[in-house]
């Protein structure tokens, strides 16, 4: 039964996890401290005959301390978070691997460029709710949506990004191991939101190459035939 962070399989998953643990430690200490004081005071200063509460309106030194110390801690957490954020969002590593995902109710359409190397041409390789990526290379993922907002979420990648109608949003990821993972939709998108599941297969680079080439060839073959409705689904 999973009740902790799942295994991370992207290059930045450990950045995010470490940030999580850093905050967990800081807040954990504060949690224990404050709750312990609360219970301790409740116990120590419970009403007893003959004892009167201490008459005090406060203490300015203490106020300053517990303003400044949390402020410093929070600014440090803020700066650390910013650095991690910039690492992930700041720049997309140089890469030729690009995939376009178009979300719609309730389907992930995954599009790879055909042999012409460009998108939205008839020879695109298209799969639905199935995505394949090579391991060990950065991949850019372009997210679009046709109808409502969806959110592309792969827990093991620590990757989540809304797909917004009217925008094309680019994210990137570099997988660190092969395997099969689930793609989830994380933004409420209608009654089928719960079922907008996809499967992601991270493959060895060679394996991936041969899969995509085969798929491209398959599409090209269908195009060559004189069938007018060509662009529809490629091999799955």
């Amino acid at each position: 039964m999973r009740s902790w962070l799942p295994e991370g399989v992207s290059t930045y998953s450990s950045t995010i996890d470490n940030m999580f643990y850093l905050i967990l430690v800081v807040t954990g200490v504060l949690f224990v401290l404050t709750e312990a004081l609360l219970f301790l005071f409740a116990f120590l200063y419970r009403r007893r005959a003959g004892r009167r509460a201490t008459y005090t309106h406060g203490n300015n030194t203490l106020e300053v301390i517990w303003t400044i110390v949390p402020a410093i801690m929070l600014v440090i957490l803020g700066i650390a978070s910013r650095n991690a954020w910039n690492e992930i969002k700041g720049s997309v590593p140089d890469t030729d691997e690009v995939v376009t995902i178009t979300a719609s109710q309730f389907n992930w359409e995954v599009r790879y460029p055909g042999s012409d190397g460009s998108f939205d041409t008839p020879d695109d390789v298209i799969t639905n709710n199935e995505m394949r990526l090579p391991v060990g290379v950065p991949v850019r993922i372009r997210l679009r949506s046709e109808d409502v907002i969806h959110s592309f979420f792969v827990p093991q990648f620590r990757l989540k990004q809304d797909a917004v109608p009217g925008l094309t949003i680019e994210v990137w990821v570099e997988a660190t191991r092969t395997g099969e993972f689930e793609i989830a939709c994380a933004e409420l998108c209608g009654f089928g939101h719960y079922s907008m599941r996809g499967v992601l297969t991270v493959m060895e680079q060679g394996e991936y190459r041969s899969w995509i080439e085969e798929a491209q060839a398959g599409v090209a073959a269908t195009l060559a035939e004189p069938a007018p409705t060509a662009a529809a689904g490629g091999p799955a």
């Binding site: 950045t15 800081v26 620590r158």
Partner: peptide
């Protein structure tokens, strides 16, 4: 007691990189 817990969990979400994962 519980506001402390709720408030501290807010700090996780405030951190942009962590929120990538725990958002929604």
């Amino acid at each position: 007691s519980t506001f402390i817990i709720g408030g501290l969990s807010g700090v996780f979400m405030a951190s942009t990189p962590v929120d990538i994962y725990i958002h929604d």
